[in-house]
Nucleic acid binder design. Structure first.
Lengths: 126, 126, 126, 126
DNA sequence: GTGGTCTAGACCACC
DNA sequence: GTGGTCTAGACCACA
């Protein structure tokens, strides 16, 4: 697996994990891969995976059954969605709008980009 | 000056510097504050400022006249804009649109948020 | 380790490092000594070594695996050779030939010097 | 006038000055431009020119008549030539030959480059 | 006055 | 253990 330089690896893994939950690939109650499995598939040190899981557990997204493994919690989906939505609205959007101003981009430009993005996505799926 | 925790101070200073260029507060050819001056006004160690300036010089945004100081390069404005615009279009926007999809947000939602943002800005300036 | 006065230490270390790559002592993929190790063996402050490594990384000669260390990049050898060869052909040689003209030296003189140099090298290795 | 970054400006001026002597443009006994004149033509701070002249005077290449100006000394040509020849043989050539070895270049390559250089010079003068 | 380099020592996040 | 950042303070060459 490939990672960006500017963010901690364990957080990048957590982020992808959350995306999988939002996409419905892991549902509440599902058992998720063990630390060791995950470490192998991501080619990352088990300690780093452990940190990801601890982090997700602290957020109430997964929980641990001792000796058995980690599972997506009942509220896992909702919590993930709430957290990311909040971050999106309070952090990302304002930053983005400010950046648009600096670059002199308008709402029209933004909607343009959106349509193009959607178009490109369509082409990829063909 | 105040700084966030999770990003290196020297980079935060560089970023604000670029924003000042984009806002036209420093124009190509202008001499920028000396390392020591900048260190005083930002309440940061001169070494850290030095690092910012070296970083900006590597990017071709500023250049040095020996014994005199640092100056905004002729292409400083264009380079800054190009760099940030490229990052915006190739990195930030795709991330944004993907995140919207994950959260189930539509283009209408986005324009809504934009108008609200603009409104809030207006209130601040009153 | 001993250093000249008129060139920055971190650059002198970088240069020797490149020579070691050209001599095949460090190959692409090899892990190089950690910052602290290198600092001890060269009797130089770790910050200075850090600067060397950052410099080499900017040139694409080495790269970093986080938490593990620095490695010679795949193109490390080729890049080093290309950089130095280019500098040699475009900078050093023309300067040399111009200097020869100024001093009134001919190609025969140059080949003479070369053979003497080779001879001296031979003596040293006996 | 343009200057390289890695060498002090006053030394670069001194070097060009010496080249002018070797090329016979300034002969022993000639009066050379005043500090102020030189400062204007080179677009450099007078202090820097002063430093160049002091440096050349220390080497016995030029001398000062108080209130009149600077002159090329009688031994100016010979001293310049001797100094540069010595530097060439003891410093530059060995460095160059070592670099050739690192890059895997032979004497044949060197003579090749020499002939090409001469050819290029011919074309320029046409 | 300007930048540039280096040291010493500290603290931190991450693997 | 790894790198990375920051501070404090010093020294230097250069313009």
């Amino acid at each position: 697996m490939e990672f960006k330089d500017h963010q901690a690896i364990y957080l990048q893994i957590a982020e992808r994990f959350c995306e999988n939950i939002l996409l419905g690939q892991w549902k509440p109650g599902d058992r998720i891969p063990s630390v060791r499995e995950m470490a192998v598939t991501t080619e990352v040190n088990p300690n780093t995976i452990m940190r990801t899981y601890t982090y997700l557990q602290d957020q109430g997204i997964i929980f641990n059954k001792r000796g058995i493994g980690y599972f997506v919690s009942e509220e896992g989906f909702d919590k993930t969605k709430a957290l990311r939505k909040n971050d999106f609205l309070k952090q990302e959007l304002p930053r983005l709008f400010k950046e648009m101003e600096l670059l002199g981009l308008s709402l029209e430009d933004l909607t343009d980009f959106y349509h193009r993005f959607k178009q490109d996505q369509g082409h990829e799926n063909q």
